[in-house]
Design a protein around this nucleic acid. Structure first.
Lengths: 295, 295
DNA sequence: TGACTCATGGTCGCTTTCAATCATAATGCG
DNA sequence: CGCATTATGATTGAAAGCGACCATGAGTCA
């Protein structure tokens, strides 16, 4: 009939059974949705706004949820990798533009091997929803495709590097030795006339295995990477088929890349200066819906 | 002169360079933080609140961001696995309680092998921050530990099942054959007197390999799993060391489990009363006449 | 039984946020 | 340059959210 509350303990802070169960349902709801407004929760749980507010206060103090003006975020277990956090947004613009150029050169039905790194991550984001097979050693990339039934996903195993979230080690290399993919998209920490360099010893080996597994090799690297060496040598320029970079790349480098027999694509991250005059590459397929004006 | 004002409605056009750059910085900021308030963005980008609002309108229409009252969420590339979404919250309470009992029986310094599944995921959540080594075939579990420098993480590779986010196939089994862990935490789709059952053919093989790699074996399964078979047989009860379940487990089952030489831990999801059935019994209060207003 | 605690729902005033509007500065174009 | 368009910042009234307070009802304990 009416609410029964069998709470026997009067320790002050311990909530009763009903309360606990409702809060449990609440965080489950928020966990699934990622975000919920106060009103959503009132409707979902069938209690008053006041009660929801009290629940949120308790859950926030407990650390499970995070309140915002007008709603809640799920705060439990959302880990973020430092590599993706610390970058300054300026470079992201170049990375995105480079990624777009690389992604549009990948066809449906291909098997694509995606390296770790922020630029390849952007490539991966643009490939979500496409009908392709994806092979990767990167946890963030794998997450993008994990719930996509459109794409098949193969993940390389091994030891996971905490900072970058990529799988390393002999096991990953071994698995790579048995795979063949149509296109590999590789990142690099440094590029010189000799070839690609990377900052991680184990990763270099893995990337070499990636090169061997590939039909064709794309390298995505913004212009700041050129002329810089890094810890270990990965590969010569001759194993690269296509290199995508941004307009910050000097004329000398462009020539040198082309001289090595590598196809070079240079993209303009944000047409700030009329360097090449053409900034009309923006297709406006979005017809503006006539916004209703409120009187 | 006409009094028309085009400003308010002509926002669907191509934005200028500066605007585009700022919006790019904006989504980068939101991407990193997950959520940002209007005020955060004003401070971060150094423009007025009105401008931020216009940016958010544009980005929301474009699908990159999602507005809430008082802030923005990042909306790009957050994939969620269906298995974690569709569960009814009632079971989550039992799962959490079971997980807590299992997690507190794992010591610092151990090497723990975590299976896929929602209950083992809860175990994993409780192990975050502990000094342990983690081996898993589950992508969601791996995500929990990926940015944790406290714990070493080894991920099994192979084909990733889209619905559950676990790695399957011969590659995973092969790597497991070369590993040894102190404790394996296993889930099950069904448990009978004969042993554990699972719903996935390939996963059964992987779980058998997990059993072989383990020093001791925990099985976490809520009481609804008992007496149910599933697609394939995984293992007999004799390979299990500890079974954790909830109080819904009947006395017959408890006896049968113990008779098989398995340690049994039964936890109470809601420590005082099961309380199933109607939970919103305050409904009839709504017909109460409006109370006097207080000044 | 009566005092007490817990959980809840409703209402108040106050604060924040929102959308819309206007005015001005910056930009683009012939 | 002059004109048109866009981008921005400030303002304003309306709406929504918030914390605090109080009343009610159920259950517990002495």
């Amino acid at each position: 009939m009416v609410a029964f509350n069998h709470n026997a303990i009067s320790q002050g802070e311990i909530p009763g059974v009903q309360t606990r169960q409702r809060r449990s349902r609440l965080i489950d709801f928020v966990r699934v949705r990622g975000f919920a407004s106060l009103d959503d929760l009132v409707r979902e749980l069938g209690v008053s706004e006041s009660t929801i507010r009290r629940d949120l206060d308790a859950l926030e103090e407990q650390g499970t949820a995070r309140r915002t003006h007008g709603g809640v975020l799920y705060a439990g277990g959302h880990a973020r990798l430092s590599e993706f956090d610390e970058r300054q947004p300026a470079h992201w613009a170049a990375k995105r533009a480079i990624a777009a150029a690389a992604a549009e050169r990948i066809d449906d039905g291909e098997t694509v091997l995606l390296d770790g790194g922020t630029t390849t991550y952007e490539v991966a984001r643009l490939l979500v929803g496409r009908s392709i097979q994806v092979v990767t050693n990167s946890l963030p990339v794998a997450n993008l495709f994990a719930s996509e039934s459109r794409a098949d996903l193969v993940l390389l195993g091994g030891y996971v590097s905490p900072r970058t979230g990529v799988c390393l080690g002999p096991y990953a290399n071994e698995l790579l030795g048995r795979l063949h993919v149509t296109t590999t998209v590789l990142s690099a920490a440094g590029i010189t006339a000799e070839g690609l360099y990377n900052a991680h010893l184990l990763l270099a080996e893995t990337e070499q295995a990636m090169l061997r597994a590939a039909g064709r090799v794309f390298v995505v690297a913004d212009s700041s990477k050129f002329g810089r060496k890094s810890l270990t040598f990965v590969s010569g320029l001759d194993s690269i088929d296509l290199l995508v970079s941004d307009t910050g790349l000097s004329a000398e480098w462009r020539q040198q890349i082309k001289a090595a027999g590598v196809d070079l694509v240079v993209v303009d991250p944000a047409p700030l200066e009329p360097l090449d005059g053409d900034h009309d590459s923006h297709r406006d397929d979005r017809t503006k819906p006539p916004r209703e004006r409120h009187t």
